[in-house]
């Protein structure tokens, strides 16, 4: 039986990504697309820079042949605790939940796109047109996730549908959430196990432990956005 404060205190969700393990293989990108019903916009729209990837692998190539260095960084919504996107939304379509998630409510969104313009991480995606699912492709859609319409913003939710199920499971078992209860699609698919997800408020969780690592850094920490995604620097000898 867990104690009362543990039960009432909301979990604070966070993700840790070990850049030393990440190989840039993009399994997470497809896992996310399938789990979250992210539309394939097609070649014409992609050519206009409108393709949507809630998580993407950013590739930075530096140096000249033969001394070329490549770095990969998976970038998803950082679920900032001081999110620049939140105050600018005129209708509260994006706001902060008690679990530290940066929420996007699709059917409240009017589509000012201000949030995307104020996101330093460029992780917000706009539905310029209605998504197309030529039959029978619509059968592969996840019934647990909204299908967005044109004119609304969308982005990573940390797989809220899985968070809800994990929390429900913990509640059924009358305990606080623990590592393994919630595994977002990207984390689950990662072939090198470079991603971790859990409750950072629980100091014994894996993410809390990794957040204390001396390799831990957050993307553009200097902006004061207080992201909930923790990157673990590469352990390069160099």
């Amino acid at each position: 039986m867990m104690n009362e404060t543990e039960k009432t205190q909301k979990p604070q969700w966070a993700m840790a990504i070990d850049l030393d393990r990440c190989t840039g293989c993009e399994a997470c990108v497809v896992a996310c697309r399938i789990e979250n019903n992210i539309a394939v916009v097609g070649p014409e729209e992609s050519a206009r820079d409108r393709s949507m990837n809630w998580i993407r692998i950013e590739r930075y190539m530096e140096g000249e042949f033969p001394d070329v260095r490549v770095r990969f960084r998976p970038v998803l919504c950082q679920h900032c605790q001081e999110a620049p996107c939140e105050p600018v939304c005129p209708v509260y379509a994006t706001y902060h939940t008690e679990e530290g998630l940066n929420a996007q409510v699709y059917n409240r969104c009017v589509g000012t796109r201000y949030c995307a313009n104020n996101c330093p991480y460029s992780v917000r995606f706009f539905n310029f047109f209605d998504p197309q699912w030529p039959a029978p492709l619509e059968k592969s859609l996840n019934p647990e996730v909204s299908i967005r319409t044109r004119g609304v913003m969308e982005k990573c939710t940390f797989c809220i549908q899985r968070i809800r199920k994990g929390e429900e499971k913990a509640r059924d078992e009358d305990r606080a959430v623990r590592d393994g209860d919630v595994i977002p699609a990207c984390v689950g698919s990662c072939p090198t196990k470079a991603m971790y997800f859990g409750n950072i408020a629980d100091s014994n969780s894996e993410v809390a432990r990794l957040a204390r690592s001396n390799r831990a850094e957050r993307l553009m920490e200097d902006l004061g956005t207080e992201p909930r995604v923790i990157y673990l620097r590469k352990r390069d000898q160099a």
Binding site: C25, E26, A27, V29, V30, A31, R33, I34, P134, A135, P136, L137, E138, K139, S140, G188, S189, C190, P191, T192, K193
Partner: peptide
């Protein structure tokens, strides 16, 4: 694969429901 899966495997449902 111990629970992991690559991009191709993840996309496989689209071969089942390919239009």
């Amino acid at each position: 694969n111990r629970g992991s899966l690559c991009a191709r495997g993840q996309a496989a449902v689209q071969s089942l429901y390919n239009p």
